[in-house]
Design a protein around this nucleic acid. Structure first.
Lengths: 142, 142
DNA sequence: CGGCGGTCATTAGCACGCAAACGAATTCCT
DNA sequence: AGGAATTCGTTTGCGTGCTAATGACCGCCG
């Protein structure tokens, strides 16, 4: 039986559900927190740039951005120099959510790996990196 | 930074994409292969029973079953003894897909962990089990 | 300068998860 | 026996991912 794939799926689902619940307490859904993480670092990126950094497709970012706009987390502005581009800027609410959301993320990771030793955590990390490297033709970088 | 969560998400996405591509070669989408795996073992279960075994919600199974019915993978039959129940039965096509799909699953797992030693694989497995145990209040069982 | 190809974002449509609301059938409890 | 409560499946609507098709805009090239 394909033990590992099954366990992987279950662990991922649990982690994602916990993350969504935790983020939702601060008005951020789990898929939005990735976009936020990038914009907290570099505000005013375009959907395409965000997609590249997050390894998602542009349509995914566009749809997420629309929901985030409706939720008052960001605003769209056409680039004055290049009318094809749209730049996404965080609102005050989005900036205010940074520390709470980052804290939730940190706490979840800590909780999920609470019963692992430091060595086991390192093993897990290297195993994940190896899997990613094996399946993704190329870089593992950031 | 929450390294582990990020790595986990990326690895899961890659695994899922590969799995979907592999299964699709045999007319089965990645979400359907889980339903199939259970029905290959025990045909004629109800959506509720399947949901319980797969730890998914009943609506998810119902919708997946509808798509599988349209794809000619299963048929719905009302239980003659209890009119609330619907039983899902595999078609010949679904049974024919068993060996190819199981083989794809096995190959994917093998490929993903190709650069891991047996010991690393065991480490990964126990780490996943611990995470699941930590986040899911109760059983890790089947 | 005027069209043409390339580069964007967006829209549409699908898969697959969830929760909540609904309707049908059974079971339980007077 | 007959109404109330429970147990099912289904429908609906949302979030998050994808691909393919569309449309706006820029830059280049003749």
């Amino acid at each position: 039986m394909s033990e590992l794939l099954t366990l992987f799926t279950r662990a991922h689902k649990l982690l994602r559900a916990e993350a969504d619940e935790a983020m939702s307490r601060h008005g951020v859904r789990v898929g939005q927190n990735l976009v936020l993480a990038v914009l907290w670092e570099t505000d005013g990126l375009t959907p395409g740039e965000l997609a590249a950094r997050l390894r998602l497709t542009t349509p995914t970012i566009v749809n997420t951005a629309t929901r985030m706009e409706e939720a008052g987390l960001l605003t769209r502005m056409r680039d004055p120099a290049d009318g094809r581009l749209v730049r996404l800027y965080l609102t005050e609410r989005a900036r205010a959510a940074q520390h709470p959301v980052e804290e939730e993320r940190r706490r979840l990771e800590e909780r999920a790996t609470a019963t692992l030793t430091d060595e086991e955590r390192r093993h897990l990390r290297t195993a994940l990196v190896k899997i990613i490297e094996e399946l993704s033709p190329g870089q593992v970088a950031p």
